[in-house]
């Protein structure tokens, strides 16, 4: 009975909670510290994978080591106005693209060969579109349309079929996302083409 009385005191309850919290949070902090480097590296490799995908160089079933070595052998990084660009060749770049989708920010990479006016590929790093509808922008059916896609000589670069001059298909049932993606891709393409024409990437 005496024990129970002690347990029902506020000071005991608060002290108990504080102690348990310190132990649990301390343990988690230690584990977090121990795995942080590894998690960051996983994130970097994921990013490299997306860059390789945009350059259409991603091997099937590539291991981490393979992706890392392929990445460092293929690309030179370049800083342009605080934006990191990945240079594959004199005229071939993988550049980040981003804009607002239907629900939230969409980020990705696109590979452009400025000399031949060709897109090498497209990849999305993150988006928050509806799974099964707008979310299908990350599926091969949509992304593969951009592989080796020859662009028209001047904007608009990307036009959905069946409009005249159309070169890609939108996702049926996800017009909002499709239009948003096309709009920011076109805007980014114009931006990068201008910069390339000005000689910013030399």
């Amino acid at each position: 009975m005496a024990k129970n009385k002690r347990h029902s005191r506020y000071s005991y309850s608060i002290g108990f909670m504080v102690l348990i919290t310190i132990i649990m949070v301390g343990a988690l902090a230690l584990i977090n510290e121990a795995t942080e480097a590894r998690i960051r590296q996983n994130g970097e490799v994921k990013n490299q994978e997306k860059v390789l995908e945009a350059a259409n160089l991603l091997p099937e079933n590539g291991t981490y080591q393979k992706i890392q070595s392929l990445f460092s052998n293929s690309f030179e990084t370049m800083n342009w106005n605080e934006t990191i660009l990945y240079q594959l060749d004199a005229s071939i770049f993988v550049v980040p693209v981003s804009g607002s989708g239907l629900w939230g920010a969409v980020e990705g990479y696109i590979g452009i060969d400025f000399a031949t006016n060709t897109i090498l590929g497209l990849s999305f790093v993150s988006h928050s579109e509806t799974p099964g509808l707008g979310g299908r922008i990350e599926e091969p059916e949509f992304l593969d349309q951009f592989d080796k896609l020859l662009l028209p000589a001047k904007p608009d670069y990307l036009i959905y079929r069946p409009k005249p001059g159309g070169n890609i298909d939108a996702i049926s049932g996800a017009t909002g996302t499709s239009n948003a993606v096309r709009n920011f891709l076109n805007a980014d393409l114009i931006r990068y083409y201008d910069a390339y024409a000005r000689g910013d990437f030399e």
Binding site: H7, S8, Y12, S13, F16, M17, I20, T21, M24
Partner: peptide
């Protein structure tokens, strides 16, 4: 303490 056991469990 019995009256805060749920909090402890969730933690």
């Amino acid at each position: 303490p019995k009256h805060i056991r749920m909090m402890v469990q969730v933690l």
